[in-house]
Design a protein around this nucleic acid. Structure first.
Length: 238
DNA sequence: AATCACCGCAACCGCGTACCG
DNA sequence: ACGGTACGCGGTTGCGGTGAT
C-alpha cells in the first residue's frame, strides 16, 4: 500500500539528535510508552517524525541496549545466523539480546564481511551444530547453510515461493549422496506446504505478533515444511 | 601542521505489509 | 473488498573521527 508520509512534512527536524531531544523522548516514553509513534513526537513536543523517534529509541535510547564491542561468541552467532538467514538483521537481533538490527548490520558490513573469508567458528558453535545433527539421528538439512529461494512449481503463489527455501547443503547432499533422507520435492510436497502454511497462519491466530516473532526468528516456515516432511524435530538454539 | 583517505556509526529513505475503518 | 495509515525492515547515505602521508 501507500508509503507513509514522513519527514517531508514541513518544519520537522532531521539529522543527529541532541541530548535535549533524547531526554524529551526518553521521559515521554517512560511516562506514556510508545503505542503510537506517529502521534508521539507531537505529544512529546519534538520536532521529529515518528519514524525518526522510533529509530532513535530502538537503536540508541532503549535501556536494554548493550554497548561496546561484539564478543567472539556474538560474532560467531552472527556468522551462523547470517548463514541461515541471510541479511535478516532484525531476526538476528532477536537472537542477540541487547544488540540492534542496525548495529548488527553495521558490524557485518564494517568488520565481519572482511573476516568471513578466514572465518573459523568457535569450537562451542561447531559442537552445538554437531550435537544437533547427532540428536536428530539422521542426516538433516544443514541449518548453517545459506537458505536459497527455491523455485516453486508452476502455478503456485508467489507468496509461497517467497518463503520456500532449500539449503545449499541439502542440494549438495542430494547431489553427493544416494542415501539422502531429504524428502523428494514433488507435487504432493507443495500441496503439503500449502497445508502447512494454512495451519501455521491459523496458529498465529489473532495475536499476529507471536507468529511474526517466530517468523522473525528465522526460517520457521520452511522449518515447518521440513517438519511436515518428517524431518528436524527441534529448533536450533543460539 | 595540513591534507587526504578510509572507517565506523547514526540516521535517513523507500518498500512491503499488517491493520483498521 | 478496498483504500489509507502506520509500522518494521533492509539498503544506503553522510558525517565525524582517526590514521597515513
Amino acid at each position: 500500500m501507500g508509503r507513509a508520509p514522513c519527514c517531508e512534512k514541513m518544519g520537522l527536524k532531521k539529522g543527529p539528535w541532541t541530548t535535549e531531544e533524547d531526554q524529551v523522548l526518553i521521559s515521554y516514553i517512560q511516562q506514556h510508552g510508545h503505542a503510537n509513534w506517529r502521534a508521539l513526537p507531537k505529544q512529546a513536543g519534538l520536532l521529529r517524525c515518528g519514524k525518526s523517534c522510533r529509530l532513535r529509541w530502538a537503536n540508541y535510547l532503549r535501556p536494554d541496549i548493550k554497548r561496546g564491542n561484539f564478543t567472539k561468541e556474538e560474532e560467531d552467532t552472527i556468522f551462523q545466523l547470517h548463514e541461515m538467514l541471510g541479511n535478516r538483521w532484525s531476526a538476528m537481533a532477536a537472537k542477540l539480546p541487547g544488540r540492534t538490527d542496525n548495529e548488527i548490520k553495521n558490524v557485518w558490513h564494517t568488520h565481519l564481511k572482511k573476516k568471513l573469508k578466514n572465518y573459523q567458528p568457535s569450537s562451542q558453535v561447531v559442537t552445538k551444530q554437531q550435537s544437533m545433527i547427532k540428536s536428530n539421528g539422521h542426516k538433516n538439512p544443514d541449518f548453517s547453510a545459506r537458505p536459497e529461494v527455491c523455485g516453486p512449481p508452476q502455478g503456485s503463489s508467489s507468496e509461497l515461493s517467497s518463503v520456500t527455501v532449500m539449503t545449499t547443503a541439502v542440494k549438495q547432499e542430494q547431489m553427493d549422496s544416494s542415501e539422502s533422507t531429504f524428502p523428494e520435492i514433488d507435487e504432493s510436497f507443495w500441496t503439503q506446504a500449502e497445508d502447512s502454511k494454512m495451519e501455521f497462519s491459523e496458529f498465529r491466530g489473532p495475536n499476529d505478533k507471536l507468529g511474526c516473532q517466530m517468523i522473525e526468528d528465522g526460517m520457521d516456515f520452511w522449518y515447518n515444511l521440513f517438519i511436515r516432511a518428517g524431518e528436524l524435530p527441534e529448533l536450533p538454539e543460539f
